[in-house]
Design a protein around this nucleic acid. Structure first.
Lengths: 191, 191
DNA sequence: ACCTGAACACCGTTCAAGT
DNA sequence: ACCTGAACACCGTTCAAGT
């Protein structure tokens, strides 16, 4: 039985850090601002995480774990794999709905050069989780020949990520929806 | 008759700042590092640009101007519009070839929340230029019904941008090539 | 016209000191 | 066990002072 995430300080720090990083990235994650949001001083953060790098790694790890849970939930409640694929882009739409935020891993993929190595690893895991899920659903849907499924899964992930990035750059959720609809019309995603 | 770009200091600053921003973004553009690369002190940068924000706006402006020139050159030398569309992703591949760098406008689209307003405007122009070019070529190629051309142009741009971001996050150019090939196989881009 | 050193308030981080 | 103020070297920026 896990306690609710907001019970202890480390969880509050992770939650607040995630929100900040989705809007400002790793470089833009200001520890004094984060600390204030949690109600402590910046120096106190170091009692919970040994460094900003380790905090970011923990944030990125929890981020892909949560994503995996959401995707499994989606697959569980939506048995039809084609319907699953239609709903998949929604998981990226939610970030945009949340104050024009974006996927943490996309932001950090851009910041690749400035990320500590173990943060890079956790960031890559998010893409891995998404691609693996897409492969599984694509196979179940029988959309592409099995040999082409891995490539197709990666293409869908990249395209959805790109749609989110372009829509964020315009602060325009409707653009995201149009892009996804066009992916569907063009055959990249099932209509 | 314009002098070569490297002749005066402002141009050297713009060129160096562009390279840095393509790797580290707006937030990661360190003025002391930039100044050293140009061979002056950070304080001297303010004689050429009134602020980091104005420097970044100038960088982003030149960036989309250069992109427009490259795309016009491509359309000029490659008369067949379908062949043009096949070569288009190459313009994004070049950044990855250059030390795993990425499109300046993609990076800054991620940093949207932290950009001064006039930088946001110049960043958006890059996407505008690319989308307008794609619309023109798509129409010439007769690939999609004219009514669907604007949406298709945006979808291609977003997908290519996403492919670059995903490949950068893995420092893997081969992944970029696979993604583009899959876009072509799925019908988003002409094969 | 262009450059500079020194200073400002702000970053991540450390540490001695508190409860 | 957890928090803090003060300090460190580093950021963007300013400015008086140099050529």
């Amino acid at each position: 039985m896990k306690k609710p995430a907001s019970t202890n300080s480390s969880d509050k720090i992770l939650a607040a850090a995630t929100r900040i990083a989705q809007a400002h990235g790793y470089g833009g994650l200001n520890l004094r601002v984060l600390a204030e949001e949690v109600g402590i001083k910046a120096a106190s953060l170091y009692h919970h995480f040994p460094s900003k790098a380790d905090l970011a790694a923990a944030v990125a790890k929890r981020y892909w774990e949560d994503s995996a849970a959401v995707l499994d939930g989606l697959a569980g409640e939506t048995q039809d794999p084609v319907a699953c694929l239609r709903k998949y882009p929604q998981t990226f739409r939610i970030s945009l709905e949340n104050n024009n935020r974006m996927c943490l891993s996309s932001f950090m993929a851009a910041e690749y050069d400035d990320l500590p190595e173990h943060v890079q690893r956790e960031v890559a895991r998010f893409a891995d989780v998404n691609v693996a899920w897409l492969e599984r659903i694509l196979l179940a849907a029988g959309i592409a020949p099995p040999a082409e499924t891995p490539a197709r899964a990666r293409a869908i992930y990249a395209a959805v990520v790109g749609a989110q990035l372009m829509a964020r750059g315009r602060a325009d959720i409707a653009l995201f929806d149009t892009l996804i609809a066009t992916y569907q019309a063009s055959g990249l995603l099932p209509a």
